[in-house]
Computed example of a mutant assay.
Amino acid sequence: MGNLLCCVQVDQSTVAIRERFGKYEEVLEPGCHCLPWFLGAQVAGSLSLRLQQLDVRCETKTKDNVFVNVVASIQYRALADKASDAFYKLSNTRSQIQAYVFDVIRASVPKLNLDDAFEQKNDIAKAVEDELEKAMSAYGFEIVQTLIVDIEPDEHVKRAMNEINAAARLRVAANEKAEAEKILQIKRAEGEAEAKYLSGLGIARQRQAIVDGLRDSVLGFSVNVPGTTAKDVMDMVLVTQYFDTMKDIGAASKSTSVFIPHGPGAVRDVASQIRNGLLQGASSSH
């Protein structure tokens, strides 16, 4: 704003307050105005119409006795049609707004627990904005927007909250891991049961095949060699298998020594035991 030869310049987005002999006369819009100082006219001051922001940090206590710092951002501006009220009625606009913000926050936050305060930030901001709008409109100011930009608990409280959150996540992870291990164990047991079932079927079929083969051998030998009984044929087959087994054990380079009774009588006992075992296997497979 300039003042030269009774002329004044009012900048854009600004209004000036004109007085005559110390009494309010009018509001000067942006542009050039004639101001005859010799007739008592003067500019008392100027008022910006730009949007302004005030950040207010307020310490208060929640319902669960946690002290927090609430940071509110107030966006406001003076109204051109109420410029005289904005200029004359308030000496310190920012202090006035800060006082109202303190009052509303300290009346709202103590009703909420800490977690609820974080969740209801918008409700707190709306309460502050409504109160400011109602109070500041009488002074020629408009509250454009009110934001609760941060709620800061004590550092120890934040650390405790982080530890609680971490413990909860670890608990969930442990449950998921236990559930996964449970599923693996169930699947492993199902696999083992299926494997044993199939192994049993294989053993049963193997024994059945052995019995069928021995039966065919006995029948063929009895037909081709008259006068022999099935018992004689079985004894001969079992003795042959016995000696084949002894030969395989002796031929293996890494076989473990096996001590068994040996002799003609022992062979008869072995044959009797093998025959009884095969007959039992055949009967169980049927």
Rank of each mutant, 00 (worst) to 15 (best):
V101Q: 08
D123N: 12
A78G: 03
V104S: 09
F87K: 02
V101H: 11
V109S: 09
S108G: 00
Y100E: 09
T93P: 00
L112G: 05
K89Y: 07
A125H: 08
L112M: 15
S95C: 10
K126F: 12
Y88D: 01
S84K: 12
K121N: 05
A99N: 10
K121R: 15
D81M: 09
T93S: 01
I124K: 03
Q98E: 15
S91E: 12
A125I: 12
P110S: 03
K111T: 13
R77Y: 00
V101R: 05
Q120N: 12
Q120P: 02
V101P: 09
Y100I: 11
D81C: 13
D115T: 13
V128Q: 08
A80V: 15
I124R: 02
N113V: 05
K111H: 09
K121W: 06
K111E: 14
K82D: 11
D85G: 05
R94P: 01
S95Y: 07
I97P: 01
T93R: 01
E119I: 08
F102K: 11
L112R: 11
Q96N: 09
P110F: 02
Q96T: 13
A99Y: 06
V101G: 11
S84N: 14
Y100G: 06
L112I: 09
Q75H: 13
Q75D: 07
N92I: 07
V128I: 15
D103T: 04
D115I: 07
I124G: 03
Y100N: 06
R106D: 04
I97H: 02
Q96M: 11
N122F: 05
V101A: 15
S84F: 04
Y100D: 08
A99D: 10
S84L: 06
V109M: 09
E119A: 14
K82Q: 14
P110D: 00
V128H: 09
S95P: 00
A117T: 15
K89C: 08
Q120S: 11
E119Q: 14
F118P: 01
N92L: 05
A78L: 02
Y76M: 13
A80Q: 14
L112W: 14
R106G: 04
L79H: 02
A80H: 10
T93W: 03
D103M: 03
K111Y: 07
A127C: 00
T93Q: 00
K82T: 07
Y100F: 14
K89I: 02
Q120Y: 11
V101N: 11
A107R: 14
Q96D: 09
D115L: 10
I105W: 01
A125W: 10
Y100K: 04
R94A: 10
K89L: 11
K126Y: 08
K121P: 04
V128C: 15
